[in-house]
């Protein structure tokens, strides 16, 4: 089925419970080809043009279509709006898959290494879910992306992710990803960091170290107090003490990587102090968080 509007698509999904939506197919078809998934029917989302772009709302919010491709998000006009999301999209796989892979697919797949996810978590993005309307129910609801990911409020059968609301912060934001190689690759760890100067806040999320992006809230609050918000962006001024930036990195790493990281359940009980894997991963996360903060405040 190849609906051309969102309404047709939710209709089609509602009518056949066995149907599965497919956007770029870069995650779905891999599962089908590997025999892990045998969908009864497919609803292709590629022709729904309204979902392939974005619009503005109330001046301060961008409403992104779920059908935005990763490649589209990497273009300069988008990068000027939401730089961290553009950074994430740019590194999310090779050009061939980014040309067709979508924002909606990245969210719905909810992979630990989904690169847009920590950015959406740091931006506190909200998803719109659409469903075929029933009597007394428009079928649409809004859920924070982090609630979708953690399963606090998961996507329900027949629902389609239509829009993602992201605040426009008009301030530097950074996404950094460690992969251990130069070619395209999945993240070993990633850090998204956004500045919200209006609220004098720093928001940060760490990707790939846990099934969902993690927010080190205490570290965020602490570092916001260390930033010289007025010096930010001034020629020659230093918006943060390098020692504080380094401490922030360590703080984020300690908050997001547990001591028992990489240990199996039995040895975790016996283990004293962090495992070697935890030490390594913390080092990586700390470097990423420090560098991300440094770049955002440069």
């Amino acid at each position: 089925m190849l609906p051309t509007s969102l309404d047709e698509a939710v209709e089609a999904l509602g009518a056949s419970p066995a149907a599965v939506p497919v956007a770029g197919g870069t995650d779905l078809m891999e599962a089908v080809n590997a025999g892990r998934l045998r969908p009864g029917a497919l609803v292709g989302l590629g022709r729904i043009t309204e979902l392939r772009g974005w619009r503005y709302e109330d001046g301060g919010t961008a409403v992104l279509g779920a059908g935005l491709t990763l490649a589209r998000m990497d273009r300069p006009d988008f990068a000027a709006l939401i730089p961290a999301l553009a950074d994430a999209a740019r590194t999310a796989g090779p050009p061939q898959t980014r040309n067709v892979g979508t924002l909606g697919g990245n969210i719905a797949t909810a992979a630990a290494t989904g690169d847009t996810l920590p950015v959406l978590a740091a931006l506190e993005a909200v998803a719109t879910l659409a469903r075929a309307p029933r009597a007394g129910d428009s079928g649409t609801r809004e859920v924070p992306v982090s609630h979708l990911l953690t399963g606090v409020d998961p996507m329900r059968p027949g629902e389609l992710l239509s829009w993602v609301r992201v605040p426009l912060l008009h301030a530097p934001q950074v996404f950094l990803k460690a992969t251990g190689r130069s070619g395209p690759s999945r993240a070993v760890a990633s850090v998204a960091l956004v500045l919200d100067p209006a609220r004098r806040a720093v928001r940060c999320a760490v990707g790939a170290v846990a099934p969902v992006p993690l927010r080190p809230l205490e570290a965020e609050a602490w570092v916001a107090g260390c930033v010289d918000w007025d010096a930010r962006g001034e020629e020659g001024a230093q918006a943060i003490d390098p020692a504080a930036a380094a401490a922030f990195g360590e703080y984020v790493a300690a908050a997001c990587v547990p001591d028992a990281y990489g240990a199996d359940a039995s040895s975790a009980l016996l283990a004293e102090g962090p495992t070697a894997a935890a030490v390594r991963l913390r080092r990586t996360v700390a470097v990423l968080a420090r560098r991300a903060l440094g770049r955002a405040l440069k």
Binding site: D87, A178, S182, V287
Partner: peptide, 15 residues
């Protein structure tokens, strides 16, 4: 400068 970690990676020339 194509840094270790690749284009768009986390590389920092100072390191």
């Amino acid at each position: 400068w194509l840094l270790p970690g690749g284009p768009g990676g986390a590389g920092d020339p100072a390191a």
